[in-house]
Amino acid sequence: MSMMKFQTVERDSFFSRLDFRPKLFMVAVVTIVAFVWESPMLQIGLAGTITVACLLVGVKWSYIRTILLIMIPFYALLLLTHAFFNRDQVMALRGIESVNQLSRVFTFPENWPFIGGSFATWEGLNYGFNVIFKTLTLTLIIPLAVFTTEVDNMIVGMVRAKIPYKIAFIFSSTLRFFPLLIEEFSMIIEAQRLRGLAMEKMRPIKRVRVYAKVAVPLILGALVKSQQLEVVLQSKAFSGSPDRTYLHESILRPSDYALIIFFVLFFIAAFYLLIAFGIGTFGGPI
């Protein structure tokens, strides 16, 4: 059976042909803008655009769906906490002085124990949506950049972008060895099941304790492997010094410059509209 690998898109696209540096720039701009914007509508638009871009460049829907499924409980919790408890922040952002001025969406009957009388606000709910789509954008922008780039090009792109070579090397080694660690983890869990451990019948807390026990052989194995890796690296004249040559080149082409210019303009426009017209603020025009 083939070993688990990190996903790379199979589809050749405008995006997969780009250098990694404009993509890094894109990640930086989108991250900053997503952080700065507080408007749920603009956040929905941004997250939607990134999702569509992911699908167009070949990131598998199954991957996006998995992320959404993992995030749903977290999103539900965010929505509830913001709707019921985020009062001071939304009041400050909207310039509201009294709680009574907030629009109520739902109120628990007064006679209910503990939660009777508490209410969800439309403003809190809106702010919750802002946070949810902000995190979705930040979660999906990474695969959009990483999955569409060969690891080799990523390393050279990172080094050319003045990221220290050691960090770039650690990044590529993680991509290479993390699947090995996952496989080892599965083998250890399998070995425990074969020693009568019925994971399927266990309560979550007991299951966590079992996973903790896996740490012993896993850490031991990782230590052995990391020492072997160090010896291998030494034998291949690795010193971590950036003073080395590279097989792969990182050359910026017109399409790369076009993407950089597009995101420079997007960045300027986003900040201009935010400062001049309040577009992007919570409760602003959009």
């Binding site: 690891v151 080694s173 890796l229 291998v232 291949k236 690795f238 097989l247």
Partner: peptide, 14 residues
Amino acid sequence: ISTSVENEIAFALE
């Protein structure tokens, strides 16, 4: 240690 055959060969040379 590399993620492609050619990179594996190139690594020590680099």
